[in-house]
Design a protein around this nucleic acid. Sequence first.
DNA 1: ATGTATATATACCATTTCGCATATTATTTG
DNA 2: CAAATAATATGCGAAATGGTATATATACAT
Lengths: 200, 200
Amino acid sequence: MSTQRGRPKKYDPQTALQAAGGVFWAQGFSGTSLDDLSAAMGMNRPSIYRAFGDKEAVYRLALAQFTRQMEEGFNHTVLQETDFREGLRRFYRAALEVYSSGEAALGCMVMCTAPAASITHLDVQSDLLEVIEQLDRRILKRVELAVDQGQLSAIVDAKSLSKLIQAVLHSLAIRARAGESKTSLRRFADAAILTILGKT
Amino acid sequence: MSTQRGRPKKYDPQTALQAAGGVFWAQGFSGTSLDDLSAAMGMNRPSIYRAFGDKEAVYRLALAQFTRQMEEGFNHTVLQETDFREGLRRFYRAALEVYSSGEAALGCMVMCTAPAASITHLDVQSDLLEVIEQLDRRILKRVELAVDQGQLSAIVDAKSLSKLIQAVLHSLAIRARAGESKTSLRRFADAAILTILGKT
DNA sequence: ATGTATATATACCATTTCGCATATTATTTG
DNA sequence: CAAATAATATGCGAAATGGTATATATACAT
């Protein structure tokens, strides 16, 4: 409750993390130096250390922030739309806007940078797995609802179907980062929905 | 034609590259130092430089070698099997053996390490895109053959279907690296084929 | 054997990198 | 106003990094 003591922070934690995330997103974990972070965050190294911990801690916090934003996108599309197909279509579109925005298309921060670091930094691997499984669970829930509502017919296996839906996202992420055009990716996403969920 | 002059190489280029690839595969491009390479390849840095060029050149050569091996796997499964579904199933299995072999599952060297480096090293981005598009083309060819032979019915769009087939591979690669079990991934792969290509 | 070609081995260099120890500044509390 | 608190700023230092210059070793050709 006490009003803040001592010298006031010059930075906003959220914005600083966002800036750090931007660098990590483009350069990956080990491709990014503390100096890079310092410049982007507008904080000098000791301040970063005090505020967030070491390089790996900053990276993981930035990952979490990115994930949170993507989850919001999921809520605003898949979960809000009554028709599952249409909600999914909007979700893929929204993801593509993130993946292919700005100058260079960076793809998904998690899928395109975390795997490279995940073998030598096991905490990052845990984060990566958790993100994937969490999304599996959330998609599955919505798939099961769609089945109950008769929106999906004759499903092989709801769990595998959910993973397949996420697989498209993985591919969009990588392909965006590889340089495929947004229009090409949109076409792919739309067609994938048709093939996966049937044409009805 | 002349027999080799000068001091003979102590290393075999193929094996040396394979060793380099192993390190890059686990640690990624920027996570790997020249000293790491030197130790793994059994060559000191100047020799590496003379033989293959700088760090990026070594990485790209290792990528190419890895890609070649995966392409052979594709030939021995998808292309050799008369039934497309069965060939695809065998291909996914073979890929999983690569992705999840050894102590730690490393996933696909291309999909799990190249994206991280692709923004700052544009040649790597080109390699990545080329690998993806090349596989798209090869799958597409086989899909079209299957359609001609009546093995596939009522396809939305052969190109998108091919991309979807590769999407499953991308996801397997990432999920393996994230730590998902081989059996879980096998189950997913099998179910994905059913969903994508129909149950007939 | 001698010179030429090719490879390896040693040592070095400039820079970067991470992390921290030590000031210094700003704000609140007593 | 002084003490306490909490942040920023400066600068140091050991190690790692990418790359190269120089020296040495090993083979073939004549």
